[in-house]
Design a protein around this nucleic acid. Structure first.
Lengths: 209, 209, 209, 209
DNA sequence: GATGAATGAGGCTTCATTCAT
DNA sequence: GATGAATGAAGCCTCATTCAT
């Protein structure tokens, strides 16, 4: 029970730190700002974390965990080719909560550029996501919804890379107004589908016109 | 001539700062570290920049400029559908210099999360790149190498988003060993091409097998 | 209790700063010198004051408070025309403590020349002193010790102005050796008195001699 | 001729420094601000002055000189008891130029609190003014306009002290709106006059009423 | 466990001064 | 004589951390 309280408190601190990172950036994450956000004194932090670096690590972990949970929840609603786009959409930043998570993620990426430990964590995260998305595609192949000749892991990697690019860009408001980056995945998804050659062939005939 | 020296020196400082950012991250970018990298005294910096924030801005601008120049150079070698992949490859991090540029770029993105000015610069950068890549695609459409029914700007945006995701991931060593992220663009490029319906059709037939 | 400690500490810092200002001037008032005088570390100061400017303000306030208290103490010993000169003497710099207070006061005046906030504080201080001295004169008029036809506030203002000039000059050792500036007030005090026309008349006859 | 240019330039620099001191205070007096005000480069200053301290000294001297000249000009218009008040009024701050001079003077006083050299200069200045004003009073005594039984130097000192207090207060806007501090000198001047005992005697009778 | 006062290193900036051009 | 780039000390402030209460 004591242990539970302890872990609970750690999680609260990590979350507070994560929110601060997302909202104001790493430089604004100070022990003072965390204590203020937690409405507690500075000294408390050292009871739960061994220095600020550990809090940062925990904040990054908190966000990564949330992001994975979000993906898992989306997957739990059932898998089909037609659900791929909504799934991607659910994974990208689209509401306050997901924007916070993506905000932390972006800072984690830049943090990892100079911190090998963070980079290792990041690699592990990505590997899990790749495996997860890869297994989804394999399952769709087994369901006969996706062409069997494609490399599931390769496509998963590409989708994840693209999602990161889109997610960060969306987070920073880098897309033109009204632009829906996810719709671009239609091209890719259509390409994965079985038996839709007809429509595409027509369009392609236009070249020779 | 005096003015030239002044600008030259500013550029040198910006470059030194950019290299520091890429190599050790923003927190390691201090006036001391810049002066040390420049082999000069701290006070010099204030002769050329109006505070550290201005140096950071200049460093970001230096990297963005280099990245655009790199893209422009790649484009100057001629445009064709078959050159699209090499072009993308040239734009992604692949050597020391390009890794430095991408390192700064990643930090600029996370910096922009909390700095509206940096975000505005980023948006302008992206808009230019989008226009550039969009015009390339339009030209390819005019040359009859790309299907006329696709939305050039939409595809350009998607390619850029994906490149960012791949570029950052490649920079951080997030891809599995031996993985070539660029090859994933083959799917997209093939989709853009005119008159290649045949091969795809064959593959798609496998679904029904 | 905690609050008391806090305020007590603030007062100590303000006093230390005031003594430094009086002894060595504003340029010598640095965070280092204050910390050294307080025998504590530099960081402590920011626990109690919001920057150096706030310490300076508090130091000025400390001295002004002391000066007013000194005046109030002198007044509490009873009021009569014969006590006016001793009262003035008590208000002017005459011992180590009062010299410190006047030293700070002088620096406050020059500080106020470029700082509207300080000037406003100064104006308020002066207004209080003017009111206080004015009420003393009114009381003496009621007691029949001072001529009823004089303007109490005007005389109070003149006395205060003169006291400032004398006080600053005395502080800087500007008077000739052995000179007692306060005795000059005899002229004014005699002029205020009721019923001493005789002595003056005699002296004035000398003109026609 | 060269020497003249040199001295002329020194005077210009001293004046520029003095104006800066009066307008923005000592802390704002930097080599850069002086050079900017002079519209020249920083290096020039070291051709004419041996460091900043020398410039400050010269600026103080410039203002003191001006103040004395102002007093001398006022005296050259002829001396009589009736001209004493206008003379005092001319010496106090009353226009842009005199306010500048008084501004520098105030800073000189606070500067002298921690700088024995400046204090010595100040003492010498004051001694000259005391002698000047004292000789004026002596002359008035000889002209039979001032009572012969007063101590000329003592009165001169008192007048100077009061003028300083009034001048500084006026400079800082410390007087109540509409208040004319100089009129307070009427009391003193009347007291100096020969043969006006009648009016005073009448007023004094009011005490017994 | 919790508090927050204290520490002192280190960040950014400004300044007077020097000196090569 | 004039310029202004360069220097580096020193100013103020913030920060993570420690520790007595």
């Amino acid at each position: 029970m004591r242990k539970l309280d302890h872990d609970q408190r750690r999680r609260e601190i990590a979350e507070a730190a994560a929110r601060l990172i997302a909202a104001e950036g790493m430089p604004a994450l100070t022990t003072r700002s965390i204590a203020k956000a937690m409405n507690c004194s500075i000294g408390v932090l050292s009871h739960y974390f061994d220095g600020k670096a550990a809090i940062v690590t925990a904040a990054f972990a908190w966000a990564s965990e949330r992001i994975e949970q979000r993906l898992a929840r989306a997957l739990s609603r059932g898998i089909s080719v037609d659900r791929l786009l909504p799934l991607i959409r659910a994974a990208l930043p689209h509401d306050r909560q997901s924007r916070t998570e993506w905000g932390v993620r972006l800072h984690l990426w830049s943090h990892a550029a100079a911190d090998p430990d963070a980079a290792a964590v990041l690699r592990a995260d990505l590997e899990r996501n790749r495996a997860l998305l890869g297994s989804v595609i394999v399952q769709l192949q087994r369901q006969g919804e996706v062409r069997p000749d494609i490399d599931a892991r390769g496509v998963a990697q590409m989708m994840i890379d693209s999602m990161h690019g889109m997610g960060f860009a969306a987070l920073l408001g880098l897309h033109p107004a009204g632009h829906d980056p996810v719709s671009a995945f239609n091209v890719l998804v259509d390409d994965l589908r079985c038996g839709d050659g007809a429509r595409r062939g027509v369009a392609r005939d236009a070249c020779n016109a």
